[in-house]
Structures are given as structure tokens and as C-alpha cells.
């Protein structure tokens, strides 16, 4: 049988990717938990809690979503949330073949999401850049044919303006896409661990 200290050490190593504050809180909590249950009940507490991996996967999965729910969520944060969900899935005790399927599914989702964000990004960055070139071209021909010049400068300004207008919807879109991806993954994770608990 594992001792309480070994158990906590294992748990700590499974959640070491979290910020220090989170690690300490969790370890303190479970340290106290064992103490409350009493030294002689260590084995039954371990049996009721589940393996350190299981406990860790729940902490990681919840941390990912919690981190996302704070108002200051950014795309960067969402990506770190996705990372924590992957860690949670890795930490949870699921059969290997199933794990491989899940991981490929998760990566597919991430790639689809990432690709669509990238496409929009290129489009939106491309607009002002080509706009700027058009404006430069317009100024270049100003002495030869001023009508052409006006045409190019006008097109250029339209492109720049559109790029600027589309920027904030784009930022929202990518934020939304990543955060709903994380929520989807969390749901998937909950289903999996729940089924496992039932299916003993």
C-alpha cells in the first residue's frame, strides 16, 4: 500500500505544470484531508479518492476551464487551457487505444480551429498591407495620370479601412472559437472519466 506522503508526492508530480500557487493549494488541501481522516484510515481515503492520476486529472481539467472563465481571457490563455485539458486527459487512467483515438480527435479539433483562425488572420493582415501598396502605387503615378492615382489611392484606403474594421470581430471570433473548443474538450473529458467511474 502507498503511504500518504508517496501519494501526495505523486499527485504533486502530476500537476507540476500548474502555477505554484495552485500546486500548493491542492497539496495543502489533500494533506489536511488525510490528516482529518486519521492516520489509520489512509488506505480507505486513497481508495475513495482514486489514483493520484485521477485526482490530478480532475484538478487540471477544472483549472483549464476556470482559467478561461475569468474576464481577462485571451487567445493565449485559451491555448494554455487546451494544453491543460490535454494534460488532464494524459493523466487520467484511460485505456491506451482509447487514449490514442481521443488524442488524435483532440488534435484534429485543434488543427481545424487553428487553421480557420489562421486563414482569417492572413486575410485581415493582407488587406491593409495590399492597401498600403496600392496607395504607394497611386502616389507613384500622380504626375503621369492623376485619375489613375486617385483610383489606386481610393482602393488602398478602402482595403486598409476594411482590415481595421474586421480586426475586432476577428479577435472576438478567435477568442470564442478557442474557448468553445476548450469547453467541448472539458465535456468530453467529463464524459470519459464519468463513464469510467460507472463502469467499474
Amino acid at each position: 500500500m502507498v503511504s500518504k506522503d508517496e501519494y501526495l508526492k505523486k499527485l504533486q508530480s502530476k500537476i507540476k505544470k500548474l502555477p505554484n500557487e495552485e500546486i500548493n493549494e491542492a497539496i495543502d488541501f489533500y494533506h489536511e484531508y488525510f490528516a482529518e481522516a486519521g492516520e489509520e484510515n489512509t488506505d480507505s481515503v486513497i481508495a475513495r479518492l482514486g489514483s493520484p492520476s485521477f485526482v490530478a486529472s480532475q484538478i487540471l481539467a477544472d483549472y483549464a476551464v476556470k482559467d478561461l472563465d475569468t474576464n481577462t481571457s485571451t487567445t493565449k490563455k485559451s491555448f494554455s487551457a487546451i494544453w491543460f485539458i490535454i494534460l488532464a486527459i494524459l493523466a487520467s487512467p484511460i485505456a491506451l487505444p482509447l487514449l490514442i483515438i481521443i488524442i488524435s480527435l483532440v488534435f484534429t479539433l485543434i488543427i481545424v480551429c487553428g487553421a480557420s483562425i489562421l486563414t482569417f488572420f492572413v486575410f485581415i493582415v493582407g488587406l491593409p498591407v495590399s492597401g498600403a501598396f496600392s496607395i504607394i502605387a497611386g502616389f507613384a503615378v500622380i504626375v503621369q495620370h492623376w485619375q489613375t492615382s486617385i483610383f489606386f489611392i481610393g482602393i488602398g484606403l478602402v482595403a486598409v479601412g476594411m482590415g481595421m474594421l474586421l480586426f475586432s470581430p476577428f479577435a472576438n471570433f478567435s477568442k470564442m472559437a478557442t474557448s468553445s473548443l476548450v469547453k467541448l474538450l472539458k465535456k468530453l473529458f467529463d464524459k470519459l472519466t464519468y463513464r469510467r467511474k460507472e463502469g467499474i
Partner: peptide
């Protein structure tokens, strides 16, 4: 405190005991 709270909730709900800590932490963060 954590342990007694877990036992109280477990009296009415069939949950694994390790479910409670993340819930407490989340509620605390909010």
C-alpha cells in the same frame, strides 16, 4: 473545512471524493 464538507455533500450525492476540491477552488476563485 474540506473533509467535513466533502462528507456532507457525499451523504446526498454519489460523487467521487476527488470531485470536491476543484469545485471549492473554482468557487473560491469566483
Amino acid at each position: 473545512y474540506g473533509y467535513s464538507l466533502t462528507q456532507q455533500v457525499r451523504e446526498v450525492m454519489d460523487i467521487s471524493e476527488s470531485t470536491l476540491y476543484p469545485v471549492l477552488r473554482r468557487l473560491q476563485k469566483k
